[in-house]
Design a protein around this nucleic acid. Sequence first.
RNA 1: CGGGGUAUAGCGCAGUCUGGUAGCGCACUCGCUUUGGGAGCGAGUGGUCGUAAGUUCGAAUCUUACUACCCCGACCA
Length: 427
Amino acid sequence: MLFSKLLIPTLKDAPQEAEVISHKLMLRAGMIRKVASGIYTWLPLGLKVLKKIENIVREEMDASGAQEVFMPMVQPKELWDETKRWEKMGPELLRIQDRHERDFCLGPTHEEVITDIIRDNVKSYKELPLNIYQIQTKFRDEVRPRYGIMRGREFLMKDSYSFNIDEESLQETYLLMRDTYKKVLERIGLEYKISAADSGAIGGDSSEEFHVLAENGEDTIAVSDSSEFAINTELLLKEGEDINSLEGKPSPDGNGTIQIKKGIEVGHIFKLGKLYAESMKANVLNAEGKASTLHMGCYGIGVSRLVAAAIEQNFDEKGIIWPHSIAPFDINIIAIGFDKDKDIASASIKLHEELTDMGYDVLLDNRKDGYGAKMKDSELIGIPLNIIIGKSYLENQEVELKGRNGQSSSNPISDIKTILDFFKDKK
RNA sequence: CGGGGUAUAGCGCAGUCUGGUAGCGCACUCGCUUUGGGAGCGAGUGGUCGUAAGUUCGAAUCUUACUACCCCGACCA
């Protein structure tokens, strides 16, 4: 794609509204713009990243055997009355009325809708287990939205709901989802911890949170310095105890000592048990021909929050350093003098074509600016590999390869294989 | 909802204390020269100074009310 044709409004200075790194960089890189507090428009560059994460999540969910659906954002009060959540939930549930003055809410989650579908359409244990998911915009009227996309009111979430005949089956699905989430985060390339969590307002039997480790994380978790163990500090603190007092104590799992880390909660998996199925009378017939209440699980990943979390974990003073898996573009061809020199123009267009044909997502910076301005933008938006076509191309057909990680080398432009090898190392 | 802060051009800011009819940098437009680390010169475009009311001959500036946004807290799949 041609840089000159894309809407990528980069900024030298971050707007004063932004405080945390990911928010500043997303604004500066031209990924998002605010529409109202906690509500954002995703511009082309931001949307590309969002879609890449969404696709990784979708692929892993599909691979796990889950099935994708798409539920409505607007939901009728009657369903929420069944679980008593219409009254239980506070103002974070945004309520609206239609022209007939019927009550609706903007969906902050979809247990009611999906349970309604399943109870009407699934009648036998033979059809179970089922794991249904969607990737959809959620709305929660947060008391205080903050940090840009990280804690917005409107956000993109993958939420799935499993329906199992018994606890044993639920446990299997739960572990499958736990494994799937690990695959998602590993594929994206983020450092994370899984911690036991308070199951909170959602209720249910047990839950675990997936935290991406980052300085600006909103959550504080206690991790063992010598095992996989991690736990939300809320569950570890006794009345009146200070978080810092935990540091250095023996880890509850018996391995090593506790370290306090900051994390961004990007995933949460729950075993709900019969909680919602009971209140909504979701039953199937079991092998004995008797009505049996469904066991449910629900599993969420904050897709839009992952964009911010990835930045919080990967940036430097120049800008974003995308993990290759979710970079908006794999390669940026920086053509110096594109508009003046026909050789530069034709060589960069040809290279763009070849690399695109090979399946890479390629940006061609054909703008009128000089080397410095183009590199600054490329570094800001975090593209993993730059290929610079300029003087040395005209002199001896060489291009410079410059990684976002600082690595660089000069190669003949014909040596595409080496270019790709350079890239492969980092992929 | 409690505490703190901000609001002047797309972004960053000055001007407000001490009222006199709006300015700087970047960006943007046109021309020429530039092009390997945010180019130079020249000429331009763009703002009812968050909103409303008040004081005054005169308000970005003083007064009052309101709104939006940000930060800390409470809250939080």
